[in-house]
Amino acid sequence: MRRRDGPRPEVLLALCGAGFLLFNFPLLLIWDQPLTILGLPLLPVVLFVVWGGLIAALAWVSARSARPPRSDRAGNRRKGE
């Protein structure tokens, strides 16, 4: 009955779980190497890239599910929910 007007809870929970894993022991150890990428140390670069990736994923998931404000919604319902 409840109208869905945001991302699905399962998707968000999955993203959060993935973030927790990626940001923590032991996966973090993979990147703990004395290597550089484009001249920059690997670990911080990976942390920032994963971080940016999570933001992008959240933005994408949110934008995809965003519905126009309630007042316009009647017109869009036809498109099939």
């Binding site: 945001g6 991302p7 968000l12 929970l13 993203l15 959060c16 973030g19 927790f20 940001f23 670990l43 911080p44 942390l47 971080w51 999570l54 933001i55 959240l58 949110s62």
Partner: peptide, 18 residues
């Protein structure tokens, strides 16, 4: 990089903000 967890936590929290 130990300054980072303080900001990674909010990232994870925001995934569940909705």
């Amino acid at each position: 990089v130990w300054f980072l967890p303080i900001y990674l936590g909010p990232m994870l929290a925001m995934l569940l903000a909705w």
